[in-house]
Design a protein around this nucleic acid. Structure first.
Lengths: 153, 153
DNA sequence: ATTAATACCGAATATAATTTGATATATTTT
DNA sequence: AAAATATATCAAATTATATTCGGTATTAAT
């Protein structure tokens, strides 16, 4: 699907405020509400817009402790990464997980409510996954920036 | 502000689907639409819900290259971290930035459209920030999990 | 126990989303 | 280049939803 300049404007706005009304959005960009509606639906149907979410303040729901964790898999396990992938996707504490090039294999972002909960996560969940051979934790002191918006250009 | 069991259900649902209508949400949870509306507004006003956003597929808007970058500041610069913080917040390529405990000072998540753009970001933007003394890049091979939802319990 | 505050509901109203049918604008085909 | 097709657009009408309102129940405080 090809994305034109109007689509880009739509995506830029919706990434910052998904609650904007269709009427207001169409007014801002300068096309009619029905035309806008069709464009947004098309962006959704084609998977450009994946979903709409509410962003919660973690500290206000007692999930204020974050950690960035690197994980290495044993060589033979690396052959079947999708098993690891599936397991990671089931763990609620894992917000993000990236397969990376370099020393370690994966970098995970973890959110928990306490150090005890973190310890429990590492000892009873993460290192019990098949093939996990090395784990290294960096605790987050503060979140400097958290942005779900990617620049559209 | 105190959050009860109904609020938790609301937050859990809105974190997955912020487009749900107030009518549908109230039906799911079992209170009337006006009561639901008041609760959601309260969660917004108290900053529990920070904002609503559309999540875009980066690969479909040619921002398919991600990197995780560690940054160390020189000792004297660490004294005024908020300067670094402000600068980081202005850079569109930086989606997330965490101040971490350990070897390095910050971990950044970067999104760009090409390796050339990445090189330009590092050479002309990141290392030109005051006090940046060490930079180390890990390129993301694949995103295993990307979740903005934190478990409410 | 009494008062005050809070949360709730059903009904009415205001606002917005969505559908419709017609028209214009590109795009492709001949 | 002209005709045909597909696509995008609009204004108006309809449908659905958000929001307001007045009153009632429930909870918390005095």
């Amino acid at each position: 699907m090809k994305i034109d300049s109007i689509d880009k404007q739509i995506l830029t706005i919706l990434q910052q405020d998904a609650q904007i009304t269709n009427v207001e959005l169409s007014r801002k960009i300068g096309i009619s509400p029905p035309a806008m509606l069709e464009r947004v639906k098309r962006l959704e149907k084609n998977g450009i817009i994946k979903r709409y979410v509410a962003i919660i303040d973690p500290s206000k729901v007692s999930k204020g402790i974050f950690a960035l964790v690197s994980v290495s898999l044993s060589a033979h396990q690396l052959a079947s990464i999708d098993q690891f992938t599936k397991q990671i996707n089931k763990l609620d504490e894992v917000l993000e997980c990236y397969h990376v090039a370099g020393e370690e294999d994966f970098i995970l972002k973890i959110a928990v409510s306490s150090i005890e909960e973190y310890e429990n996560f590492i000892l009873n969940k993460l290192i019990k996954l098949n093939g996990v051979s090395k784990v290294n934790t960096k605790f987050v002191l503060s979140t400097v920036k958290y942005n779900t918006k990617i620049k559209i250009e």
